[in-house]
Amino acid sequence: MNVAKANEPAPAALPARKVDWAPLVLVPLLALAALPLVGSTATWTTLTIAALAMGMMIFIMASGLTLVFGLMDVLNFGHGAFITVGAYAGLIAAVPLAGWLASDQLAVNAVALIAIILVAMAVTGLVGYAFERLIVMPVYGQHLKQILVTMGGLIVIQQLVIVLWGPVQIPLAVPQALRGAFFFGDVAIEKYRLTAVVLGLMIFVAMQLVLTRTKLGLLIRAGVENREMVEALGYRIRRLFVGVFVTGSMLAGLGGVMWGFYRETLTPGMGLEVMVMIFIVVIIGGLGSVGGCFIGALLVALTANYMSFLAPKLALGSNIILMVAILLWRAQGLFPVAKRA
Protein backbone atom coordinates (compact mmCIF):
# COMPACT_ATOMS: atom_id res chain seq x y z
CA MET A 1 0.00 0.00 0.00
CA ASN A 2 2.94 2.28 0.59
CA VAL A 3 4.18 1.48 -2.84
CA ALA A 4 1.24 3.21 -4.44
CA LYS A 5 2.02 6.34 -2.50
CA ALA A 6 5.75 6.34 -3.22
CA ASN A 7 5.82 6.11 -7.00
CA GLU A 8 2.84 8.25 -8.01
CA PRO A 9 0.44 5.89 -9.80
CA ALA A 10 -0.52 6.70 -13.33
CA PRO A 11 -3.76 8.69 -13.41
CA ALA A 12 -5.68 5.85 -15.06
CA ALA A 13 -4.68 3.22 -12.49
CA LEU A 14 -7.06 2.67 -9.62
CA PRO A 15 -5.52 2.54 -6.18
CA ALA A 16 -5.03 -1.01 -4.98
CA ARG A 17 -7.96 -2.25 -2.95
CA LYS A 18 -7.16 -2.29 0.70
CA VAL A 19 -7.35 -5.77 2.13
CA ASP A 20 -8.84 -6.02 5.54
CA TRP A 21 -6.51 -8.51 7.21
CA ALA A 22 -7.76 -8.48 10.79
CA PRO A 23 -10.67 -10.92 10.32
CA LEU A 24 -8.54 -13.25 8.20
CA VAL A 25 -5.98 -13.57 10.98
CA LEU A 26 -8.73 -14.44 13.43
CA VAL A 27 -9.12 -18.02 12.17
CA PRO A 28 -5.53 -19.21 12.60
CA LEU A 29 -5.32 -17.18 15.78
CA LEU A 30 -8.30 -18.97 17.25
CA ALA A 31 -6.94 -22.34 16.18
CA LEU A 32 -3.51 -21.63 17.70
CA ALA A 33 -5.00 -20.25 20.90
CA ALA A 34 -6.88 -23.50 21.36
CA LEU A 35 -3.74 -25.64 20.94
CA PRO A 36 -2.34 -25.22 24.49
CA LEU A 37 -5.83 -25.59 25.93
CA VAL A 38 -6.51 -28.86 24.16
CA GLY A 39 -3.06 -30.12 25.12
CA SER A 40 -2.36 -32.96 22.72
CA THR A 41 -1.39 -32.07 19.17
CA ALA A 42 -3.05 -35.17 17.74
CA THR A 43 -6.40 -34.36 19.34
CA TRP A 44 -6.04 -30.75 18.30
CA THR A 45 -5.44 -31.72 14.67
CA THR A 46 -8.41 -34.06 14.63
CA LEU A 47 -10.61 -31.41 16.17
CA THR A 48 -9.40 -28.76 13.77
CA ILE A 49 -9.98 -30.91 10.69
CA ALA A 50 -13.43 -31.83 11.96
CA ALA A 51 -14.14 -28.17 12.53
CA LEU A 52 -12.90 -27.25 9.07
CA ALA A 53 -15.19 -29.87 7.52
CA MET A 54 -18.12 -28.62 9.53
CA GLY A 55 -17.22 -25.03 8.71
CA MET A 56 -17.16 -25.78 4.99
CA MET A 57 -20.58 -27.36 5.11
CA ILE A 58 -21.98 -24.45 7.07
CA PHE A 59 -20.38 -22.09 4.59
CA ILE A 60 -21.99 -23.85 1.64
CA MET A 61 -25.36 -23.70 3.34
CA ALA A 62 -25.00 -20.10 4.46
CA SER A 63 -23.45 -18.58 1.32
CA GLY A 64 -26.72 -18.58 -0.60
CA LEU A 65 -28.49 -16.84 2.23
CA THR A 66 -25.94 -14.09 2.54
CA LEU A 67 -25.80 -13.48 -1.23
CA VAL A 68 -29.56 -13.27 -1.52
CA PHE A 69 -29.66 -10.86 1.35
CA GLY A 70 -26.86 -8.75 -0.03
CA LEU A 71 -28.27 -8.52 -3.51
CA MET A 72 -31.96 -8.06 -2.86
CA ASP A 73 -32.21 -7.21 0.81
CA VAL A 74 -34.27 -10.32 1.40
CA LEU A 75 -33.64 -12.36 4.49
CA ASN A 76 -35.00 -15.77 3.70
CA PHE A 77 -36.07 -17.55 6.86
CA GLY A 78 -37.13 -20.40 4.62
CA HIS A 79 -33.53 -21.10 3.65
CA GLY A 80 -33.39 -23.89 6.24
CA ALA A 81 -36.15 -25.68 4.36
CA PHE A 82 -33.94 -25.89 1.25
CA ILE A 83 -31.35 -27.70 3.32
CA THR A 84 -33.91 -30.27 4.38
CA VAL A 85 -35.26 -30.56 0.85
CA GLY A 86 -31.74 -31.03 -0.50
CA ALA A 87 -30.96 -33.82 1.91
CA TYR A 88 -34.24 -35.62 1.25
CA ALA A 89 -34.04 -35.06 -2.50
CA GLY A 90 -30.67 -36.78 -2.35
CA LEU A 91 -32.59 -39.84 -1.24
CA ILE A 92 -34.37 -39.98 -4.59
CA ALA A 93 -31.05 -40.96 -6.10
CA ALA A 94 -29.56 -42.58 -3.02
CA VAL A 95 -32.22 -45.26 -2.66
CA PRO A 96 -31.90 -46.76 -6.16
CA LEU A 97 -28.13 -46.26 -6.07
CA ALA A 98 -27.73 -47.90 -2.66
CA GLY A 99 -25.80 -50.73 -4.25
CA TRP A 100 -23.34 -48.34 -5.87
CA LEU A 101 -22.86 -46.46 -2.62
CA ALA A 102 -22.04 -49.68 -0.83
CA SER A 103 -19.59 -50.75 -3.53
CA ASP A 104 -15.89 -51.04 -2.69
CA GLN A 105 -14.76 -49.19 -5.77
CA LEU A 106 -14.06 -45.50 -5.36
CA ALA A 107 -15.13 -44.66 -8.92
CA VAL A 108 -18.57 -46.25 -8.54
CA ASN A 109 -19.00 -44.48 -5.21
CA ALA A 110 -18.02 -41.19 -6.74
CA VAL A 111 -20.50 -41.56 -9.61
CA ALA A 112 -23.29 -42.35 -7.15
CA LEU A 113 -22.31 -39.43 -4.93
CA ILE A 114 -22.22 -37.04 -7.86
CA ALA A 115 -25.60 -38.30 -9.06
CA ILE A 116 -27.08 -37.75 -5.60
CA ILE A 117 -25.65 -34.25 -5.41
CA LEU A 118 -26.92 -33.36 -8.89
CA VAL A 119 -30.40 -34.60 -8.14
CA ALA A 120 -30.47 -32.75 -4.82
CA MET A 121 -29.27 -29.53 -6.42
CA ALA A 122 -31.74 -29.79 -9.27
CA VAL A 123 -34.65 -30.34 -6.93
CA THR A 124 -33.68 -27.55 -4.54
CA GLY A 125 -33.08 -25.26 -7.50
CA LEU A 126 -36.63 -25.89 -8.68
CA VAL A 127 -38.04 -25.49 -5.18
CA GLY A 128 -36.04 -22.29 -4.81
CA TYR A 129 -37.39 -20.95 -8.10
CA ALA A 130 -40.98 -21.70 -7.08
CA PHE A 131 -40.33 -20.23 -3.64
CA GLU A 132 -39.01 -17.00 -5.12
CA ARG A 133 -41.93 -16.68 -7.54
CA LEU A 134 -44.71 -17.59 -5.15
CA ILE A 135 -43.54 -16.48 -1.75
CA VAL A 136 -40.80 -13.90 -1.87
CA MET A 137 -41.63 -11.90 -4.99
CA PRO A 138 -44.83 -10.21 -3.78
CA VAL A 139 -43.16 -8.81 -0.68
CA TYR A 140 -39.93 -7.24 -1.90
CA GLY A 141 -38.97 -4.23 0.16
CA GLN A 142 -41.21 -5.13 3.08
CA HIS A 143 -39.04 -6.62 5.75
CA LEU A 144 -41.70 -7.55 8.25
CA LYS A 145 -43.78 -9.38 5.68
CA GLN A 146 -40.69 -11.07 4.31
CA ILE A 147 -39.84 -12.53 7.68
CA LEU A 148 -43.41 -13.71 8.20
CA VAL A 149 -43.96 -15.10 4.74
CA THR A 150 -40.65 -16.93 4.47
CA MET A 151 -41.28 -18.37 7.91
CA GLY A 152 -44.63 -19.58 6.62
CA GLY A 153 -42.86 -21.08 3.61
CA LEU A 154 -40.52 -22.88 5.97
CA ILE A 155 -43.46 -24.44 7.82
CA VAL A 156 -45.18 -25.52 4.63
CA ILE A 157 -42.09 -27.04 3.03
CA GLN A 158 -41.11 -28.82 6.20
CA GLN A 159 -44.59 -30.29 6.49
CA LEU A 160 -44.55 -31.31 2.82
CA VAL A 161 -41.28 -33.14 3.42
CA ILE A 162 -43.04 -35.04 6.20
CA VAL A 163 -45.97 -35.77 3.89
CA LEU A 164 -43.67 -37.19 1.22
CA TRP A 165 -41.07 -38.98 3.32
CA GLY A 166 -42.72 -39.47 6.70
CA PRO A 167 -41.91 -38.00 10.10
CA VAL A 168 -39.42 -40.65 11.22
CA GLN A 169 -35.70 -40.24 10.79
CA ILE A 170 -34.12 -41.96 7.82
CA PRO A 171 -30.62 -43.40 7.99
CA LEU A 172 -28.17 -42.36 5.28
CA ALA A 173 -24.88 -44.20 5.09
CA VAL A 174 -21.68 -42.55 3.90
CA PRO A 175 -20.36 -44.10 0.64
CA GLN A 176 -18.20 -47.12 1.30
CA ALA A 177 -14.96 -45.57 0.05
CA LEU A 178 -15.36 -42.52 2.24
CA ARG A 179 -15.89 -44.43 5.46
CA GLY A 180 -13.16 -44.82 8.02
CA ALA A 181 -10.18 -42.58 8.53
CA PHE A 182 -6.61 -41.97 7.48
CA PHE A 183 -4.05 -42.30 10.22
CA PHE A 184 -0.92 -40.17 10.42
CA GLY A 185 0.70 -41.37 13.61
CA ASP A 186 -1.77 -40.49 16.32
CA VAL A 187 -3.78 -38.19 14.12
CA ALA A 188 -7.02 -39.63 12.78
CA ILE A 189 -8.64 -37.84 9.89
CA GLU A 190 -11.98 -39.10 8.76
CA LYS A 191 -12.10 -39.51 4.99
CA TYR A 192 -15.52 -38.02 4.69
CA ARG A 193 -14.48 -34.89 6.55
CA LEU A 194 -11.49 -34.48 4.28
CA THR A 195 -13.77 -34.80 1.26
CA ALA A 196 -16.05 -32.16 2.74
CA VAL A 197 -13.13 -29.80 3.25
CA VAL A 198 -11.93 -30.26 -0.34
CA LEU A 199 -15.42 -29.84 -1.76
CA GLY A 200 -16.10 -26.77 0.38
CA LEU A 201 -12.81 -25.15 -0.61
CA MET A 202 -13.53 -25.84 -4.28
CA ILE A 203 -16.89 -24.16 -3.98
CA PHE A 204 -15.46 -21.21 -2.14
CA VAL A 205 -12.75 -20.73 -4.74
CA ALA A 206 -15.23 -21.16 -7.60
CA MET A 207 -17.52 -18.65 -6.02
CA GLN A 208 -14.75 -16.16 -5.47
CA LEU A 209 -13.60 -16.57 -9.07
CA VAL A 210 -17.10 -16.03 -10.41
CA LEU A 211 -17.65 -13.06 -8.17
CA THR A 212 -14.33 -11.35 -8.83
CA ARG A 213 -13.30 -12.46 -12.32
CA THR A 214 -16.46 -12.57 -14.40
CA LYS A 215 -18.86 -9.96 -15.63
CA LEU A 216 -21.68 -11.78 -13.92
CA GLY A 217 -19.85 -11.55 -10.63
CA LEU A 218 -19.13 -7.91 -11.24
CA LEU A 219 -22.83 -7.26 -11.75
CA ILE A 220 -23.75 -9.18 -8.62
CA ARG A 221 -21.23 -7.28 -6.54
CA ALA A 222 -22.33 -4.02 -8.06
CA GLY A 223 -25.92 -4.96 -7.29
CA VAL A 224 -25.00 -5.58 -3.68
CA GLU A 225 -23.40 -2.16 -3.48
CA ASN A 226 -26.08 -0.20 -5.27
CA ARG A 227 -29.03 -1.86 -6.89
CA GLU A 228 -30.58 1.21 -8.50
CA MET A 229 -27.35 2.18 -10.20
CA VAL A 230 -26.99 -1.22 -11.83
CA GLU A 231 -30.57 -1.00 -13.01
CA ALA A 232 -29.98 2.50 -14.31
CA LEU A 233 -27.10 1.15 -16.37
CA GLY A 234 -29.54 -1.10 -18.17
CA TYR A 235 -29.11 -4.47 -16.55
CA ARG A 236 -32.10 -6.47 -15.50
CA ILE A 237 -31.34 -6.97 -11.87
CA ARG A 238 -34.55 -8.95 -11.35
CA ARG A 239 -33.34 -11.70 -13.64
CA LEU A 240 -29.96 -11.60 -11.96
CA PHE A 241 -31.62 -11.95 -8.65
CA VAL A 242 -33.71 -14.97 -9.60
CA GLY A 243 -30.48 -16.58 -10.76
CA VAL A 244 -28.77 -15.84 -7.49
CA PHE A 245 -31.75 -17.07 -5.51
CA VAL A 246 -31.85 -20.35 -7.41
CA THR A 247 -28.08 -20.78 -7.10
CA GLY A 248 -28.31 -20.05 -3.39
CA SER A 249 -31.03 -22.67 -3.03
CA MET A 250 -28.95 -25.19 -4.95
CA LEU A 251 -26.01 -24.54 -2.69
CA ALA A 252 -28.27 -25.05 0.31
CA GLY A 253 -29.35 -28.34 -1.26
CA LEU A 254 -25.74 -29.40 -1.75
CA GLY A 255 -25.00 -28.42 1.82
CA GLY A 256 -28.03 -30.40 2.91
CA VAL A 257 -26.77 -33.56 1.20
CA MET A 258 -23.33 -33.15 2.76
CA TRP A 259 -24.83 -32.39 6.14
CA GLY A 260 -27.10 -35.44 5.81
CA PHE A 261 -24.11 -37.72 5.11
CA TYR A 262 -22.26 -36.10 7.99
CA ARG A 263 -25.07 -36.77 10.46
CA GLU A 264 -25.86 -40.09 8.77
CA THR A 265 -29.55 -39.56 9.53
CA LEU A 266 -32.18 -37.34 7.98
CA THR A 267 -34.91 -35.70 10.02
CA PRO A 268 -37.53 -33.24 8.76
CA GLY A 269 -36.31 -30.71 11.33
CA MET A 270 -32.62 -30.86 10.30
CA GLY A 271 -32.71 -27.66 8.25
CA LEU A 272 -34.23 -25.66 11.04
CA GLU A 273 -31.63 -26.99 13.46
CA VAL A 274 -28.68 -25.70 11.44
CA MET A 275 -30.57 -22.53 10.56
CA VAL A 276 -29.67 -20.97 13.88
CA MET A 277 -26.00 -21.65 13.30
CA ILE A 278 -26.28 -20.28 9.77
CA PHE A 279 -27.82 -17.08 11.02
CA ILE A 280 -25.02 -16.64 13.49
CA VAL A 281 -22.48 -17.20 10.70
CA VAL A 282 -24.18 -14.72 8.41
CA ILE A 283 -24.40 -12.09 11.15
CA ILE A 284 -20.77 -12.59 12.16
CA GLY A 285 -19.58 -12.36 8.58
CA GLY A 286 -21.53 -9.23 7.84
CA LEU A 287 -24.87 -9.60 6.08
CA GLY A 288 -24.23 -9.92 2.36
CA SER A 289 -20.52 -10.72 2.45
CA VAL A 290 -19.39 -14.06 1.00
CA GLY A 291 -15.86 -13.75 2.37
CA GLY A 292 -17.23 -12.84 5.76
CA CYS A 293 -19.54 -15.79 5.60
CA PHE A 294 -16.58 -18.09 4.93
CA ILE A 295 -14.56 -16.73 7.85
CA GLY A 296 -17.64 -16.71 10.04
CA ALA A 297 -18.43 -20.35 9.26
CA LEU A 298 -14.88 -21.39 10.12
CA LEU A 299 -14.91 -19.38 13.35
CA VAL A 300 -18.25 -20.82 14.44
CA ALA A 301 -17.21 -24.38 13.63
CA LEU A 302 -13.83 -24.05 15.34
CA THR A 303 -15.34 -22.54 18.45
CA ALA A 304 -18.08 -25.16 18.60
CA ASN A 305 -15.66 -28.05 18.19
CA TYR A 306 -13.04 -26.83 20.65
CA MET A 307 -15.65 -25.91 23.20
CA SER A 308 -17.45 -29.23 22.97
CA PHE A 309 -14.09 -30.89 23.68
CA LEU A 310 -12.97 -28.51 26.44
CA ALA A 311 -16.25 -27.69 28.16
CA PRO A 312 -19.20 -29.61 26.71
CA LYS A 313 -21.64 -27.77 28.96
CA LEU A 314 -20.57 -24.43 27.58
CA ALA A 315 -20.53 -25.51 23.95
CA LEU A 316 -24.12 -24.55 23.30
CA GLY A 317 -23.57 -20.99 24.41
CA SER A 318 -20.21 -20.65 22.67
CA ASN A 319 -21.71 -19.53 19.36
CA ILE A 320 -23.70 -16.81 21.03
CA ILE A 321 -20.67 -15.65 22.98
CA LEU A 322 -18.62 -15.61 19.79
CA MET A 323 -21.32 -13.60 18.04
CA VAL A 324 -21.57 -11.08 20.86
CA ALA A 325 -17.79 -10.70 21.01
CA ILE A 326 -17.52 -10.13 17.27
CA LEU A 327 -20.41 -7.69 17.17
CA LEU A 328 -18.89 -5.72 20.01
CA TRP A 329 -15.74 -5.46 17.95
CA ARG A 330 -17.45 -4.79 14.61
CA ALA A 331 -21.11 -4.01 15.00
CA GLN A 332 -21.85 -4.69 11.30
CA GLY A 333 -20.03 -8.02 11.19
CA LEU A 334 -16.51 -8.84 10.06
CA PHE A 335 -16.83 -7.46 6.57
CA PRO A 336 -19.55 -4.82 6.54
CA VAL A 337 -21.24 -4.58 3.18
CA ALA A 338 -22.82 -1.45 1.76
CA LYS A 339 -25.12 -0.01 4.36
CA ARG A 340 -28.75 0.42 3.57
CA ALA A 341 -31.39 2.07 5.66
Binding site: P138, V139, L148, V149, G152, I155, V156, Q159, V163
Partner: peptide, 18 residues
Protein backbone atom coordinates in the same frame (compact mmCIF):
# COMPACT_ATOMS: atom_id res chain seq x y z
CA UNK B 1 -53.15 -36.75 8.48
CA UNK B 2 -54.11 -35.09 11.80
CA UNK B 3 -50.46 -34.32 12.50
CA UNK B 4 -50.18 -32.35 9.24
CA UNK B 5 -52.60 -29.65 10.27
CA UNK B 6 -49.65 -27.27 10.59
CA UNK B 7 -49.22 -27.60 6.82
CA UNK B 8 -52.67 -26.16 6.23
CA UNK B 9 -52.18 -23.50 8.84
CA UNK B 10 -48.92 -22.55 7.16
CA UNK B 11 -50.72 -22.13 3.86
CA UNK B 12 -53.44 -20.12 5.58
CA UNK B 13 -50.73 -18.06 7.26
CA UNK B 14 -49.01 -17.14 3.98
CA UNK B 15 -52.33 -16.34 2.35
CA UNK B 16 -53.37 -14.14 5.23
CA UNK B 17 -50.10 -12.22 5.14
CA UNK B 18 -50.72 -11.48 1.47
Amino acid sequence: HPDRWLLWLGVLFILSVY
